[in-house]
């Protein structure tokens, strides 16, 4: 006789639905070598982004310098016998302002002149006892600068003791210096990018070495090279993005925090020293875009290296096929 309970148990067992987990990805999720790769990429992205940010800052600083110098010209009046200095200064100011292209003209007053000379002559000297030249600083319209020759000519007629310095000599030196500084910065950035790319390539190939058996199995069960390459590429693009986004964001955050610190601690000794040494840690929009560019570049390089490594691995398998001496003896 059949046991009804046993029969029920049997039918329950037979009808029990099979639950499957969601299909595992063909390339396994991040393992130890994948995590190490994320860390390497993050560090290199951070260093690269810091270098790029610094170069951008130097370049913008150099441009600002250059702008400051070429925005101004100086007219110097040397003291002469019988010259009424205050009147001469006013005359020079009037002549200059009458010229098209001169935005403003400011006479450096006696107190400011004394301050300028303080490092050499000390405090409390009597300006009247020394033949101290006086200055008029003229701000010019950069887009439509005045005719310097015409100013010189007018000044020679009205105030012969006045000489015009258009800062061309200083400007030339500063432009050269700024160019060299930016060039050095770009050179360092190029080296940094090359190092990052090589590190990313070798680290990716190292991480891929542990996946050779997967490439082999997929190849032998009939997967085409493009399919295998795209599977690995997707996984490693994610690894590259994670690492590069982490490192790049950290660098951007560092610039933001340093800038905020400088703004909030103005006029303190530490801030003054840091600013004198490194300048302002303010990154422009171009700098932040550059960091985003680095993140994209590193991620793309990781994905491309993976693709090429898979293709090379499959070629190696096929080369063993063509040359049995390379294969394991079976």
């Amino acid at each position: 006789m059949t046991d009804p309970a046993a029969s029920t148990r049997e039918s329950v067992r037979k009808e029990r639905p099979i639950t499957l987990r969601p299909m595992a990805p063909i390339v396994p999720p991040v393992n130890v070598s994948g995590r190490a790769l994320i860390v390497v990429i993050a560090i290199m992205a951070f260093l690269c982004a810091v270098t790029l940010g610094t170069v951008t800052m130097v370049q913008e600083k150099a441009e600002a310098w250059q702008g400051d110098v070429s925005r101004e010209i100086t007219i110097q009046i040397k003291p002469e016998e019988g010259l009424d200095m205050e009147e001469a200064l006013a005359e020079v100011r009037r002549i200059v302002l009458a010229m098209p292209g001169a935005a403003s003209a400011e006479i450096v007053d006696r107190a400011s002149t004394a301050r300028l000379l303080e490092p050499w002559l000390g405090e409390g000297f009597d300006m009247d006892e020394l033949p101290v030249p006086r200055l008029v600083i003229v701000t010019i319209d950069e887009q439509a600068p005045p005719d310097f020759a015409a100013i010189r000519q007018s000044l020679a007629g009205a105030v012969p003791a006045a000489t015009l310095d258009d800062h061309r000599a200083w400007s030339g030196r500063l432009i050269a210096m700024a160019r060299i500084t930016v060039l050095i910065g770009v050179g360092i950035l190029a080296l940094m990018l090359a190092t990052t790319m090589l590190t990313v390539i070798f680290a990716t190939r190292g991480a891929m070495a542990g996946n050779r058996h997967i490439v082999e199995v997929l190849h032998f069960v009939g997967a085409e090279t493009g399919f295998i390459a795209s599977q690995f590429q997707k996984r490693f693009l994610l690894i590259g993005l994670k690492g590069a986004a982490f490192g790049g964001s950290l660098a951007a955050l560092a610039f933001l925090l340093l800038g905020a610190w400088q703004n909030n601690t103005m006029a303190t000794a530490l801030n003054d020293q840091a600013t004198a040494l490194f300048g302002r840690f303010t990154l422009s929009a171009a700098g932040y875009f550059g960091i985003v560019g680095i993140i994209i570049l590193i991620s793309a390089m990781t994905a491309l290296t993976t693709r090429l490594t898979v293709i090379r691995t499959i070629r190696e398998i096929d080369r063993q096929r063509a040359d049995p001496s390379l294969a394991e003896i079976g």
Partner: peptide, 30 residues
């Protein structure tokens, strides 16, 4: 190779995939 089924002496299963997923692999790559 899709027209050939092979059983390797060393099995060559993928350790991160379940029994079901390993068996389904040839169909999945197609």
């Amino acid at each position: 190779r899709r027209r050939i089924g092979i059983v390797f002496q060393d099995f060559r299963l993928l350790d991160h995939m379940t029994t079901y997923e390993n068996v389904a692999l040839p169909l999945r790559v197609r």
